Simulated scan of single mutants.
Amino acid sequence: MNTQLPLISIITVSYNVVNTIEETILSVINQDFDNYEYIIIDGGSKDGTLEIIKKYEDKITLWLSEPDKGIYDAMNKGVLLAKGEWVNFMNAGDLFANNISKLLNEALVDKNHDVIYGDVFIKKNGVLSLDKAREIYQLNYSLNFCHQSSFVRREILVKYPFSLNYKISSDYNLFLNLFIKGYNFHYIKSAISIFEYGGISSGTSKKYIKERFLILSNSHKGFKNKVWFNYKFVKMLLPFNRATILNFFKN
């Protein structure tokens, strides 16, 4: 076991995920180190999720189940309950791709790092494909890494909680504003998580596009920057979501 790592708070947010929560729990508790706490914030599941959580109570530091205002409200609750120096969100259905202590040992003890991020395996129709994090500059118009493949200092998340104004892109809002403020992002050249493709945040919905436009417009200073990075965002999406984008501007 590795006992040199600072305490890591791994937080899982769940709601009626009886088919996926157990695999996520096992991915966390089977890690190869003991310097972590595991917190589960459930939104009041009624489908059997709580029975699975209770099955592993001896491995879980803290869990609660109560109604919330959405995923980001639950994530903020988890941060306030956490005691670790670093926070990772491994939400229901997501998995660690590797034993993280081997990947992150040096990075986590470096006092200069504020956000640590790596690559992700995207799982689509049962097939895994590696999605490498892109250049950090691309944060100006796109989330260039998967949130599950990141670790953020808890003190930063306490100072800048996830905004509840965004229902599906508040994680991007956080990382973009941290980047603009000059926080240090450190890249680990390895896959950290496995993410199941799909859902409203996959870039195919009008709601996703609207939130991204709002985030870019609210975060960037100066008219030219607002226009330029919104243009870069549309240009990036256009080859994949042409119909959605065109429909968005028509209505």
Rank of each mutant, 00 (worst) to 15 (best):
I215R: 03
Y197D: 12
S217A: 00
Y183T: 06
Y208R: 05
Y172N: 01
L103H: 10
I245V: 09
E51S: 15
Y15K: 03
N251H: 06
V18H: 02
S150G: 10
N76P: 02
K83A: 14
N30T: 02
S202A: 08
I180D: 13
N105Q: 12
F213K: 10
K46L: 08
V234W: 08
T244H: 03
S170G: 13
G84R: 06
I100G: 04
A107K: 15
I180L: 15
K69G: 14
I71W: 00
F179P: 05
F145W: 13
K123T: 00
K46P: 12
N140Q: 13
N165D: 13
L5E: 07
K124Q: 14
K59T: 00
D32H: 11
V18Y: 02
L246K: 05
Q31W: 09
L238A: 03
R212T: 05
K54C: 14
T3E: 11
D47T: 01
K124M: 15
A74R: 09
N247H: 02
H220E: 14
R212P: 00
M75A: 04
L214C: 10
D34A: 08
I136K: 01
Y183I: 01
V109W: 12
I180C: 13
L103Y: 02
L157C: 00
Q31L: 13
T61G: 06
D119H: 11
G48A: 06
S205R: 00
S193A: 12
D110K: 09
I8Q: 00
L178W: 15
I10L: 02
H220C: 15
L128P: 00
L26I: 07
F240P: 01
H220W: 11
L216T: 14
K111I: 04
S9L: 08
A92H: 05
I21Q: 01
T61D: 01
E196S: 11
S129Y: 03
D42P: 05
I100W: 00
D131Q: 11
Y187L: 02
E66T: 14
S65F: 12
K232S: 11
D110L: 10
E23W: 07
V152W: 04
L130T: 09
N125Y: 02
I188T: 06
N173Q: 04
